[in-house]
Design a protein around this nucleic acid. Structure first.
Length: 430
RNA sequence: CGGGCUGUAGUGUAGUGGUAGCACGAGUCCUUCGGGAGGAUUUAGCUCCGGUUCGAAUCCGGGCAGCCCGACCA
């Protein structure tokens, strides 16, 4: 992609209507545009990141037996009445009437919608377990949107639902999902605490939240610096709790954190309400045991912007970066003695053929401006081709995250980049 | 939903009663060419409604919008 063709440019100044540093960077770099409070457009660069997050999550969900489907956001009130959640969810539900005066809601979550579907398709236990997920927009009438993408009213979420024949099976799958989530956040290169939390209105049993430390977060979490055990302050009964539940040492500290994912054991609440039954080994009719597992994709993006940046801009993990490489040809216009453009173009094509996504800065701008854009966009590698580097028959390669600069012979560029993409991330999305 | 703050060119800002200025951006031309370079020229604005006043970006009331704190948050 030629930088001169990008539909949106970077800005030098922070927007006046964003407060959190991550949101300011995302706007300045041209990843998102705020339409109104709590509602954002993902611009082309931002959408590429969002799609990469989705690809990462799909890979992990498919790997644990998840099957993707896509449910509607538009739902009739009747569905929510079955579980009583029209009342429970209350004001957070966006409610509307259609032209025939039918009451509808834009779904904030899909336990109810999927349960209503599964009633028609679960008979006997021959097909259990069943794991279904989707990546779809959710709507929640948040009384107060906050911190850019961290808390929005319309947001893309991956929601996985499990249907098991027994509590034992649910418990096993719950652990499997937990491990998949750990892998996902590791690939995102964020430290996510697996945090004990309350089951909310869903269940009496505890759930787990995946918490990333950030001042833009809205939750308070106690974390143990010794063993990494963490629990949400909302489940701390004794205000004076000092010792860690896990290792018993007095090393718990309170942090602010963003909840980037959570997992719930739903039990039989929804299966009983909707009539999802199976037959156990004794031949008895028993309710299906369910679980619910969510990850906010935009929230992940917003959180990374909060926690991964420096004075020059964003720093994306390799698997999520909108482009792998920012290629800067530097030449004196009209005096291209060293064939800078020709060689830069050849490298551009070679790298593209090797499967890398590249931004080629073809603009007639000063070097500083191009470097500045490479930095603020947070592209993992910056390649510079100039008369200076070509004297060494080389290309300068700078790693965004570490600032490390290497002069690489022109013929070895593809190899160097390929090595970086594998070793630099520990995780590769196909 | 309570409390606080704020709305001025595309963006960021100055302007507290007397006809709105700067910077960035964008366009054209020239110079420059490894960290947002320089010059010339062009471009474009007071959130809306009402009130006070000879006169309102400025004061008052209301609406709308945004941000922060709190409440809320499957």
């Amino acid at each position: 992609m030629y930088v001169s063709k990008l539909a949106f440019r970077t800005k030098k100044e922070n927007p006046s209507d964003e407060f959190s540093p991550g949101a300011q960077l995302l706007v300045r770099a041209g990843f998102v545009e705020k339409n109104f409070s709590g509602v954002y457009t993902y611009l082309p660069l931002g959408l590429r990141v969002l799609k990469n997050v989705a690809a990462l999550i799909r890979k992990e969900m498919d790997a644990i037996g998840g099957q993707e489907l896509l449910m509607p956001a538009l739902t009739p009130k009747a569905i929510w009445d079955i579980s009583g959640r029209w009342e429970v969810l209350g004001d957070i539900l966006y409610k509307l009437k259609d032209g025939q005066d039918k009451t509808l809601s834009l779904a904030p979550t899909h336990e109810d919608v999927l349960s209503a579907i599964m009633v028609h398709h679960l008979s006997g236990n021959d097909r259990l377990p069943i794991y279904l997920y989707q990546i779809q927009n959710k709507f929640r009438d948040e009384p107060r949107a906050k911190s850019g993408l961290i808390r929005t009213r319309e947001f893309l979420m991956k929601d996985l639902y499990s249907f098991n024949a027994s509590v034992d099976d649910l418990n096993k799958f719950y652990e499997i999902v937990k491990e998949a989530y750990v892998r996902i956040f590791k690939a995102c290169e964020v430290k996510a605490y697996v945090t004990q939390a309350s089951g909310g209105t869903f269940s009496k049993e505890n759930s787990h939240e995946f918490m990333v430390e950030s001042s833009a977060g809205e939750d308070r979490v106690l974390v143990c610096s010794e063993c990494s055990f963490a629990k949400n302050m909302e489940v701390v009964n004794d205000e004076k709790q000092q010792g860690c539940d896990e290792c018993k040492k007095s090393t718990m500290q309170e942090i602010k954190a963003v909840e980037v994912g959570n997992i719930f054991k739903l039990g039989t609440k929804f299966s009983e309400a909707f009539g999802l039954y199976t037959t156990n080994e004794e031949g008895d009719k028993v309710p299906v045991v369910m679980g619910s597992y969510g990850i906010g994709l935009g929230r992940i993006m917003g959180t990374i912007a909060e926690v991964s940046s420096d004075d020059h801009g964003l720093i994306w993990p390799t698997v999520l970066a909108p482009y792998h490489i920012y290629l800067v040809p530097l030449e004196k216009s009209g005096v291209d003695l060293g064939n800078v453009t020709e060689i830069a173009q050849r490298i551009y094509k070679d790298l593209q053929e090797s499967g890398f996504d590249i931004l080629y800065d073809d603009r007639e701008k000063s070097a500083g401006e191009k470097f500045g854009d490479a930095d603020i966009l947070g592209i993992p590698l910056r390649l510079v081709v100039s008369e200076k580097t070509l004297k060494e028959n080389s290309v300068e390669i700078k790693e965004r995250k570490t600032g490390k600069i290497t002069l690489v012979p022109v013929g070895l560029v593809t190899e160097f980049v390929g090595h970086f993409m594998v070793s630099g991330s520990q995780y590769v999305v196909n």
